[in-house]
Nucleic acid binder design. Structure first.
Lengths: 343, 343
DNA sequence: TGTTTTCAGACAATCGGTTGCGCAACTGCG
DNA sequence: CGCAGTTGCGCAACCGATTGTCTGAAAACA
């Protein structure tokens, strides 16, 4: 009843425009627009009438038209590395879900873009396109091409993990601080000779963790022996060999840069029938499910990864809304003290 | 030299419009548009001149304007489950990357949307919004709310994995066929008593695999003993107990519904000091890196997960472009015959 | 050379919102 | 009762592409 001029087929795929709504309510399109946005002068009564109609008929303003008029897309892009190194992917994916959560809560949408880290084309297209209001870079290198490009294209963006340029918006966990605290804790528990097993020193996160380890020692005015320190581990074999050598050097504890290395270390110790923590103490600078498979629970640092994505979007939205967030956002961590370092 | 009327600040953040290009070349905007799209009447010479200018100045037509005019966004959405069950996430993420790959290759962008599988609001917004041309549903249930909603909203979409409605666009691996073939292969290798370890029978994929197992037996006009069959395994404990019981029943081989179950089975056999394949044969209906950790290599079915995402987008784009793809796309599999089933 | 056909390309309307401006009605105050 | 100030809302000009229609010139034909 009362359908004024619909085609009558009731095919349910009709999508309303702001003009339809206006006509139906006997007001002008601009009034409807103002009712929705809440901006401009509009009577409270009319506003409610419009809002009610809109909800009842589940009207949503056309995104393209809105974005053309406002020069704002309500889209963000998250730039992901290629699926090559599968070990790291869970990190990026978790991060992405965090980002998506906050984006959705703010009526933004999230575009995923995969790149090999060198090819600028996809980025150029998105920038020229104006398809997004801002971007999240999930992996950056020293003197990153993407960072440089976005900087002088004037596109708002935020990096996940520390960026070499301190002026750039960035969100990171306090890797250095966390590793320092963990190292100090181990020392305070009587471990004198702590070995460090790390690698991939071209990545910020690894640089920071290693720095934290050294700071932990320095805080006690001590120094680790050079022979206890590995910063170039890449393959499983290298890790096993390092474990062997460290056992011969008689270290008290093996501090592993990440869950992957820690996993190998524990397996190697198992192979060698070295018990944990009886024969050797082990700790990891990053927790993941990989460390759940052992009978002994592993002492580790816990970082909430989703939070990194959440915070990245929050900071980016602040930026877009003209607030001026501090460039560096540091996220909290948690030290999970378990059996593997009982002394 | 030769800059006609730029502001001269050279701030590099100026973004060209089609009109800028037109003015610069002394043609009309419509000519530029036609040069880009290749549609409509346009001289080859002019066309090249425009194209060249566009490339040189890396001009990209504004996405919002284009999408307003064409009623086409060149966006697709992929609907992902919440991060709850972490075991399954790699599947969805891999799938997503496949989708993104093909989308990008076709100048489409991919929006990620996370939902709990019941809340229609995000979907309604995207549909009303007209923010995407089509959607990919990564997880569907019996009588899925999303499927039903999209069907009668008339939005093009494709499901990853089989859908209860055969008319819906869907992409899946031939789970039933693969499991049938694997079962037959095992029987042909002399395994008479094959146990099946599965669970989660509310999911299409599990239903199909179990069906395939039965078909494999039927093809030989044989029947597995009821006591060899588990279709309700959920926890690690249940799996260990099943393994125990099956050992007592003296089965020849344990066929595991997925990598997760297989992992547990192998670990339990290890615990019980049962050697593979000496003491027991093991096969998995799904390969993953989980199965790489053992000294013995595991016979399994290999499905290329990225391919599912790729194919989903291809099919969806075909649909959008007016081709009429068959509703069901079956993807190929590979049987990886390894030591764990040597007889 | 005159007429018809072909073709390149300009003009203008359109997509569906947003927003500055102006007009009318209403308020309050002297 | 008159005038300034406020308020509610409509008009119309955008935003930057696409596309149907129209024109003028060149090509083809007689």
């Amino acid at each position: 009843m009362g359908m004024t001029e619909s085609t009558g087929t009731g095919d349910s795929k009709e999508i309303l425009t702001i003009h339809d709504v206006a006509r139906e309510l006997g007001v002008s399109a601009s009034t409807v627009s103002r009712a929705i946005s809440g901006k401009g002068r509009i009577g409270e009564e009319t506003r409610q009438r419009v809002l009610q109609y809109i909800n009842a008929n589940s009207f949503h303003p056309n995104a393209a038209a809105r974005s053309l008029a406002q020069s704002r897309t309500y889209n963000l892009a998250i730039i992901m590395p290629e699926v090559r190194d599968l070990v790291d992917m869970p990190f990026f994916h978790t991060c992405m879900h965090g980002a998506e959560e906050v984006a959705q809560a703010n009526d933004y949408d999230l575009l995923v873009v995969t790149t090999d880290g060198t090819n600028l084309h996809p980025l150029e297209r998105m920038v020229g396109n104006r398809k997004v209001d801002g971007m999240i870079l999930t992996r950056t290198y020293e003197n990153d091409v993407f960072v440089e490009y976005l900087k002088d294209a004037g596109v708002p963006f935020v990096t996940v993990g520390r960026c070499y340029d301190p002026k750039v918006l960035q969100v990171d966990h306090d890797n250095a601080g966390a590793c320092k605290e963990l190292t100090m804790l181990l020392i305070s528990r009587g471990m004198e000779k702590i070995a460090y097993l790390g690698g991939g020193m071209d990545q910020m996160v690894n640089i920071d963790r290693y720095a934290g380890f050294r700071q932990g020692y320095e805080a006690y005015r001590k120094q680790p022996d050079k022979r206890w320190i590995y910063t170039d581990l890449a393959t499983k074999n290298q890790i096993s060999r390092a474990v062997d050598e460290l056992l011969h050097l008689g270290v008290d504890c093996m501090l592993c840069q990440d869950d992957f290395i820690c996993n190998e270390v524990v397996q190697e110790l198992n192979n060698l029938k070295v018990s944990i923590p009886g024969g050797m103490r082990v700790a990891s600078c990053h927790y993941s499910r990989l460390l759940d498979n052992y009978p002994v629970t592993i002492t580790s640092l816990k970082f909430d990864i989703m939070d990194i994505g959440r915070k990245a979007v929050q900071v980016l939205l602040d930026q877009l809304n003209g607030k001026h967030p501090r460039p560096l956002t540091m996220l909290d961590y948690e030290i999970s003290l378990k059996e593997s370092t009982k002394n």
